[in-house]
Structures are given as C-alpha cells and as structure tokens.
C-alpha cells in the first residue's frame, strides 16, 4: 500500500512551502492534511511526509505520536471527545459521561460495533466557562447535560 497526497493537496503543499523559512516546518500541517485525506495517519503517509519535509521518517513518526490529536488508527465516524479536566468535572461531566456510556453501550477508549462512534476523554478543551463540554470531531458542544447529550447522539444515529 502506498500513500499519495491528492492533486488539491499537492497544490496546497506548494503554497505552504512559500510560507515557512524551511520545509521541515511543514510536518504538522502535512500530518493534518494526511489525516483529513484518509481519516487517520498511516505509516505510508508518514513516509511520504518525511520525503516532502526532507526529514528522516522517524522524526515525523516521533511528531505524530507526540500530539494527541493525530490518530494513527481509524476511529468511528463520530469521535466524541469529552473534556475531563477540573472545571468540567466540577460542573458534573461525570454524569454526562455516564449518560453517553448508557446510550452507546461503550466504555472510554472503545468504538461502537457499527463504527459510528468512538468515545474518548480528553484534557482541557479551553471552554471552561461553558462546561461540561465535548468536541465531536471538530465541533464544540457546550453546557451539556445528561439529557442534552442523549439528544445530540440520537440525532447522529
């Protein structure tokens, strides 16, 4: 199996190269690009990115494993990322978590058997004033309650 950036992305990469003093700086933007293209980051993609960034493959692999938002494995169509840090905890995120677990019948770190949902808990999402909060793929859902979260999930099924 090999990985190639599609034509649109190849064009974007050329533009990106003009924005940074060195091509090594492109590793994060390209890892994002690969993840959007395939839904996750494969080793083949890492190899391709290393080539473009003129960096050893191991360097790109190191970067891909350092940042928590890069997924080296396929996830469900909807990635539920419930914030678990203090402000959300003080505002009863544990009740919201229980509600998700009951609704989907999965534990943290698991995906539903139909591949629709993956449940994660993440560290502070920087939305403490509207806690509890979750990020569903890239969209924030704020001021959650055990009831509102079920409505959100039902609408996605």
């Amino acid at each position: 199996m090999s990985f190639n950036f599609n034509d649109d992305n190849l064009e974007k990469i050329e533009l990106l190269k003009s924005k940074y003093p060195k091509v090594q700086a492109l590793s994060l933007p390209l890892l994002w690009m690969a993840q959007y293209q395939d839904g996750f980051i494969s080793l083949e993609a890492i190899q391709e990115i290393a080539k473009i960034c003129e960096t050893p493959m191991m360097e790109i692999y190191k970067v891909s494993t350092f940042y928590s938002m890069f997924n080296l494995q396929k996830l469900g169509k909807y990635h539920i990322q419930l914030c678990k840090t203090l402000s959300c905890k003080l505002c009863n995120k544990d009740d919201v978590l229980k509600s998700i677990q009951n609704e989907l019948n999965i534990q943290v770190g698991e995906s539903t058997s139909d591949g629709l949902f993956t449940l994660s808990q993440v560290e502070c999402l920087g939305s403490c004033g509207t806690s509890p909060v979750m990020q569903l793929n890239e969209t924030y859902y704020e001021n959650l309650t055990p009831i509102s979260i079920v409505e959100i999930l039902k609408a996605l099924k």
């Binding site: 924005k19 060195k22 590793s27 994060l28 933007p29 994002w32 350092f66 940042y67 938002m69």
Partner: peptide, 26 residues
C-alpha cells in the same frame, strides 16, 4: 499565517511553541 497545533499543552511554553512551529515535538 495561522499555524495549527495538534493537542499538546506544553506548546504554550514559548520555546516549545517554536520547536513545534519548526515541525518538531514540543
């Protein structure tokens, strides 16, 4: 230019931020 991080608290530390902006671990 907007440069997007990828989920690492430590990149708020200024020198870690620059490492990350250079394409490395923060």
């Amino acid at each position: 230019i907007v440069h997007r991080g990828a989920g690492a608290y430590i990149c708020g530390e200024k020198s870690a931020l620059l490492e990350s902006l250079e394409g490395k671990r923060g």
